[in-house]
């Protein structure tokens, strides 16, 4: 899923810890301690139970191995160090699925964000009429859950039931070669409008005076978009890109639904599907190690992307 947009200044301050004024040296009594506890404790407790403890528990589980006495003996979990991680790195299915998602992301994310940017720019330009209609029509798919979207497109792609049979009988969108891109189409269909709105919101924030000089100079809409608007919405683009990268690596519902339309989608098609399949063997320790590695890979990828784009911005 897609967490939305942040306020850069606040985030930056928070990251540096500069949000709070330097603590005074004299001890000051905390005012309203009861209220603070009453406000913070409910969320704090649940955050601890359902965020922090599970993360810790996943790491703990990933460090265990199951030992059996004989073939049918009782299974006991013992500390195994990094044994599971060694297995993760030898696991071909897992890395194939990670590689598949990288290929998916390299193609799908630029297409999706390119379209979202194009639509946002058109909405922001004086070229269009009926902007409100387009904004709504493009955003509607975001209200369709991934599972439902995948079911719908599964029918639309099918050779026998599709309204576009002339096409789907010729081109097998559910074949091993194409099904990845059919899934990419589902994801694009759902998320273009959402990303469009984020970019559009940040276009609306640009003060109109900025364009005046350009207009007086006779710059056309294309020129204004390319030279002024796109550089100014860079932060929004980077943000949507990062959320898209995270979303790509976490892909689960759409391919899982496509399994009933196409035998080419295996039970280990994406990393999360591999985790689910492994946990239902059940091999929870290996599955936990997969989870940890996937979460770390997601972090590394997002931060690498951020680094690269930031370097470019400074250059």
């Amino acid at each position: 899923m897609t967490a939305p947009v942040t306020t850069p200044a606040a985030a930056r301050d928070a990251a540096r810890g500069t949000g709070a004024p330097p603590a005074p040296h004299r001890r000051r009594r905390i005012q309203h301690p009861g209220a603070i506890v009453a406000f913070v404790a409910p969320f704090g407790l649940l955050f601890l139970l359902f965020y922090l403890v599970p993360i810790g528990y996943a790491i703990y589980q990933s460090l265990l191995v199951v030992e059996r006495e004989g073939t049918y003996g009782a299974a006991t979990e013992v500390f195994g160090g990094l044994t599971q991680y060694a297995l993760v790195f030898q696991n071909e299915a897992f890395w194939t699925s990670v590689g598949r998602m990288l290929v998916f992301g390299v193609v799908q994310v630029p297409i999706m964000l390119g379209l979202a940017l194009l639509f946002a720019l058109l909405l922001d330009s004086p070229l269009l009429r009926g902007k409100k209609f387009f904004r709504l029509a493009f955003f509607v798919p975001y209200a369709v859950p991934g599972v439902i979207a995948a079911i719908m497109w599964g029918f639309l792609f099918s050779p026998n039931l599709s309204p576009f049979q002339e096409l789907t009988k010729q081109v097998d969108f559910l074949s091993a070669d194409l099904v990845l891109w059919s899934i990419a189409n589902v994801v694009t269909w759902v998320f273009v409008g959402y990303n469009m709105l984020i970019i559009y919101s940040s276009l609306l924030a640009i003060p109109a005076e900025i364009y005046e000089a350009a207009v007086l100079d006779g710059a056309g809409q294309g020129r204004i978009a390319w030279s002024i608007k796109i550089p100014l919405v860079r932060p929004a683009l980077i943000l949507t890109a990062i959320f898209s990268i995270i979303g790509t690596l976490q892909l689960l519902a759409e391919p899982q639904v496509f399994r009933s339309f196409s035998s080419a989608v295996t039970s280990t098609y994406t990393p999360n599907m591999t985790i689910y399949a492994t946990s239902s063997i059940p091999n929870v320790n290996l599955a936990a190690a997969f989870s940890v590695v996937l979460a770390l890979a997601t972090f590394v990828l997002s931060f690498t992307f951020l680094r690269i784009t930031r370097k470019k911005a400074e250059a």
Binding site: T6, A219, G220, P231, R310
Partner: peptide, 24 residues
Amino acid sequence: SAVIDTEAAHGSIGSDVPAGRSRR
């Protein structure tokens, strides 16, 4: 801190725009 300062972008605008003068 996913969001980058826009100051850098602001800086480049002035130099880019006049180039478009002759096109339209």
